[in-house]
Amino acid sequence: MTSVTVGDGRNTDFLNDTWLLDAPLADRLPALHSHADARVRSVHDIVHRGIANVLQRRLSTQASQELALLTQLLGDVTLTSAPDERYCSFETEDHKLRSGLIYMASMRDRIQCKTSLRRKHILQNADCDICGAPEETADHIMSGCPFARSFWRHIGWHADAIAPVDELWKSTPALRHVLGPAVSSLIRLCCRELWKHRNDVVFRGLAPNLNRIMAACKEEIALWCCRLPRNSNVLLSSWSSLLNM
């Protein structure tokens, strides 16, 4: 339930923290994870010493492919002297806006959509696997794809109200059943689930399915509601109402 904005990388677990993708690398690159030693390694250690030092000498075909992708992703990582910043979904609304939406915006060029991968010469085309559009950008995934637009319509929000990824905090929702203090958290939750749904289509070969992403949103909302402070009645009632979407 927490993510990390990496600074110097010293306090971020390379494989088990959420810092580079939408989930821990251990979950997104399972074959590679199975070939790594069990010791905790920080992002700082891996960036400076190399990932090869923690991997078995002989890798499976799948692990080798995941290693090639990870190597490309790490090429975009630049550490600073600032400490790592860890945040969760249950902090104050101001902090969510700063470390949630703005964090996602800062990830625009790091979101590994197909246009980004083509620019890095990893892919030859950037077609969207969901709708077949010729340019799968981060904005296309979140609000431009017909599937994403149908998702937003289903929860009562017009997709045109979704700002570009680098300006998400400027979104102007008119979402039924959701009170103002809950909106920013819901934006983040929905965008995260759209990204995870896209990855299921691309990497697991699953067909696009509105019912599946709605179920995932409901499950995530239920988890958030269980973790809310007791005095967060506004958020609790707003999020709980979405379970009946």
Rank of each mutant, 00 (worst) to 15 (best):
L194M: 13
A159R: 00
H95Q: 05
E167T: 09
D127L: 02
L70P: 04
D139A: 03
E193S: 07
P83C: 10
G156K: 07
A174F: 11
C88R: 12
C191N: 05
N125H: 13
P173K: 03
E193H: 13
P146N: 02
L179E: 15
A161T: 09
G156R: 02
D129Q: 12
E135H: 06
W157V: 15
S150Q: 13
P83K: 03
A126M: 02
S99T: 11
Q72P: 00
I162T: 15
S143W: 00
P164W: 02
L101C: 03
M142A: 14
G180H: 13
A159Y: 13
I122Q: 05
E136P: 01
Q124I: 06
T78L: 04
A163W: 01
I162M: 15
E167G: 12
R149V: 11
T92L: 08
S81F: 05
A182P: 11
R86N: 11
L73D: 11
D94W: 14
I130P: 03
T78F: 09
L186G: 01
D76E: 09
T92H: 15
R149F: 08
P83F: 05
M104A: 08
S143P: 03
C191R: 00
C145A: 04
V178N: 04
S184R: 04
K96M: 14
W152S: 09
A105P: 01
A68T: 03
R188N: 14
T137R: 00
C190F: 02
L186H: 07
G144A: 02
H154K: 09
S185W: 09
P164V: 05
S81H: 09
E167F: 10
S89Y: 15
C113W: 10
S150M: 04
I162P: 00
K170V: 12
A133H: 09
S89H: 14
E91A: 12
S99R: 08
S89Q: 09
